[in-house]
Amino acid sequence: MGAGHAHPLHRPGSTRVHRLSPDIKIVAALAFVISVVATPREAVWAFGLYALLLAAVAATARIPARWLASRGVIEAPFVVLAVLLPFLEGGPRTILGLSEPGLWAGWNIVAKGTLGVVASLLLAATTSGRDLLLGLQRLRTPAPIVQIATFMLRYIDVIAANARAMRVARLSRCHDPRFLWQVRAFATSIGSLFLRSYERGERVYVAMLSRGYTGSLPSGVAERPAPRDWATALTIPAAAAAVSVAAWLTA
């Protein structure tokens, strides 16, 4: 499987988390997120314990909190929605005039969304793009999905470079669209970039067929992870599942 470019979220390292098999880490991250989502929103203490579990993983993998915080801004639109819910939601009101159901709904979005984003960032930071694809393949993910992800990862740098080159070409011609009435040039650039990407994809596909492509990509020999690696990686999601069950029992 060819994915020669490292994705921008990967932080190379030699920690124990980095050395774990990618399929184990994918299963662990998914199990952790499921436990978080299944937790009742009223169990505030449970989300604090989840945060401590993620902090332990980040410390073990030597991922700085500042790095996680800067990449976590991707959930900003959901945070804005969560902030608006106490004002827009109906139901009983608090002393400050805020909707009580809206406050719980906003808290639910922020708490679970933040934990899910951090868990995903830790997975991406400790696993290279190629290993993520290998992990998905070992977990019997449908081949078309793995292939689409492979090509997306492989050519995203090429497309980004084309976009930068087109912007430099516009600037060199003293045209830098910044206002609404100048959006036509930007839209034209996007359309041109789409056509270039489509044509490149078609050429790559034809080249693959000429080299014997039959619908599946070659992969290396899959080594079975050791049982102790499974036990190590599943410690965190097992603890999260225990917290989720305890939250429901005390709800």
Score class of each variant (00 low, 15 high):
V204K: 02
D176Y: 06
V80Y: 06
L115Y: 03
A51K: 03
Y205Q: 06
P227F: 08
T188V: 14
L88T: 15
L209M: 12
A233I: 00
Q137V: 02
G212Q: 01
A240V: 07
I26A: 03
D157T: 11
V80S: 06
Q182T: 00
E75F: 09
A59N: 08
P64S: 07
L20Y: 07
P40I: 08
R16P: 00
V73N: 12
R41Y: 13
A55I: 08
A55H: 10
R93Y: 01
D229T: 00
V83Q: 01
R200F: 14
S192Q: 15
H10V: 12
V33W: 13
A119L: 03
A251F: 13
T235H: 07
V117Q: 08
K25I: 02
F87W: 15
L54P: 08
W107E: 11
A222S: 09
Y155E: 03
T232M: 14
P225F: 05
M166V: 09
S70L: 13
P64M: 03
V36K: 06
I156V: 13
A58Y: 02
S216G: 03
R224M: 11
R19W: 06
T214W: 00
L195D: 13
I26W: 07
A31H: 03
P227L: 11
L115I: 02
A56K: 02
A239Y: 05
L103C: 09
P64E: 04
T188K: 15
F47A: 08
I159G: 00
Q147K: 02
A231M: 13
S70M: 12
S120E: 00
G220V: 10
L85M: 12
E75Y: 08
V79N: 04
F151H: 07
V17Q: 11
V79A: 10
A163I: 15
L139F: 02
V117Y: 03
A169T: 06
D176T: 08
T188M: 13
G116L: 05
A56W: 06
T250G: 06
V80A: 15
G13M: 05
A6F: 10
R62T: 09
T250E: 12
L85K: 04
